[in-house]
């Protein structure tokens, strides 16, 4: 499987990464090489094998419904790039 420039454009947009048009070919080439490595997986038949999402066979633990956190807004916003009146600022969101 090798990637086209358009594939790279599509996934770069999904991942919100800028890939300039003169980088597209080299990125597509890089990714295609990695995909070839991944295709080694096709050598094995996995029909009926249960996918394994976690190494351990544990169930989700449930925490009690208690408010345990305090207001740390000032602390957390001291590392934010842009805030005003307690809000995080971003370029205008159009709906």
């Amino acid at each position: 499987m090798s990637l086209e420039r358009s594939d790279v454009e599509k996934i770069a947009h999904l991942a919100r990464l800028a890939v300039s048009s003169d980088e597209l070919d080299s990125v597509a080439g890089d990714l295609s090489t990695i995909l070839q490595l991944m295709e080694q997986m096709n050598a094995v038949n996995t029909d009926g094998v249960i996918p394994m999402a976690h190494p351990l066979h544990m169930a989700q633990r449930l925490r009690p419904d208690e408010v345990s956190e305090i207001d740390e807004r000032d602390h957390f916003q001291s590392i934010a790039p842009a805030t005003e009146n307690g809000l995080y600022l971003v370029p205008r969101v159009i709906e």
């Binding site: 991944m38 997986m41 996995t46 249960i50 996918p51 394994m52």
Partner: peptide, 14 residues
């Protein structure tokens, strides 16, 4: 083809 297949092989490796 990729993610699910990988999770299955993960099971085999395990």
């Amino acid at each position: 083809a990729y993610y699910l297949k990988a999770q299955q092989i993960r099971h085999l490796i395990s």
